[in-house]
Design a protein around this nucleic acid. Sequence first.
DNA 1: AACTATTTTTGATTTCAATCAAAAATCAAC
DNA 2: GTTGATTTTTGATTGAAATCAAAAATAGTT
Lengths: 186, 186
Amino acid sequence: MNIIEFLKTKIELSETEIEQISKIISRKKFDRKELILPVENSSKKIFFIEDGFCRVFYAKKEKDITLYFLQENQIGLPVDSIFYDQICKFGIEAISKGTVATINYEKWQTLTEQIPNLQKFTNSMMISYVKNATDRIYNLKFQTPKERYEMLQTAFPSIFLHSPLGHIASYLGITQETLSRLRAKR
Amino acid sequence: MNIIEFLKTKIELSETEIEQISKIISRKKFDRKELILPVENSSKKIFFIEDGFCRVFYAKKEKDITLYFLQENQIGLPVDSIFYDQICKFGIEAISKGTVATINYEKWQTLTEQIPNLQKFTNSMMISYVKNATDRIYNLKFQTPKERYEMLQTAFPSIFLHSPLGHIASYLGITQETLSRLRAKR
DNA sequence: AACTATTTTTGATTTCAATCAAAAATCAAC
DNA sequence: GTTGATTTTTGATTGAAATCAAAAATAGTT
């Protein structure tokens, strides 16, 4: 979904407000395997996935680990860079073709000061970000790879159509061979 | 540190504002092993650790896993309950004696609408919460138990004086025996 | 459709941490 | 300080998943 459409499902916006917001959005199509945000980069942008699937990952010497997946209407936020002026460890890679809307965070910030409803949206965006992260920590600490696999199936069924096994395995915390065996049973 | 003192280090507050805030704070001393927030409870309160150490944990059938530690001036936030009206999976347990300030989130919320600086504080609280959570995910997915151990030592050196090994081990993601062996080397 | 490249599955072996069990050390209470 | 309880360390064994290697299956290209 187009980000403006998405905003309109969450908050009320006047025509002029929509225009203001539209001005700071840039939109880009991406292909499978395309790097939307490189690892260990500094980027102060919001990445809103309008269409398609991505993975947030970290890669260093041989290891390539998927932290989480993003699907339509979800947001990637380089927290380290935007809020702490640090290099962001994670990168974002496309696992299907699609469209991403990117917004310079500073410009977004100035708009939120003018549009109260947009501030509300930003707040709830942060809250859902916190929620996702804490859920993920629970999932990593307290659930088994199998349970993780099942949760992923219900939360992101279409990921399996797009993502190579290896990325899913690293998300679950097992090797691709183990995942292959895990799902062969039954 | 007293929460009011802490707020004053972060934002400017008038005398009347301080009074307003003070009214909604309740303060409680706790002892070692005391349960500050039971597991799978519903609580819409902010827990600010004024003094001492706690752990945020989850426990179910035999398993008892520490998600993270809290020390002085840190905040425990039952995200699920406050923002999603769900039961909060995690509990908070004291690992030393100390003091916790608890604040009803709704009352806090109303105050933030009146005190703009307090809103700023809440925003940066959410941001640091996001930062901590995403760092933790990175730590869990990309670092070894040994690296985790070393990070914990630098970030929370005093945890080791208060917490039984088992809790630290579950935080790191290994058994207590393995941790014991890990630190015996050298 | 045929060929190539990539991805997934299957098999055999190894390894590292969990488990089980007991001893040693530390802590707490009297 | 002594006793008992709790926590930590050490040792032996087991098991589950990683690794290594190759075959099978799938997808992509001309």
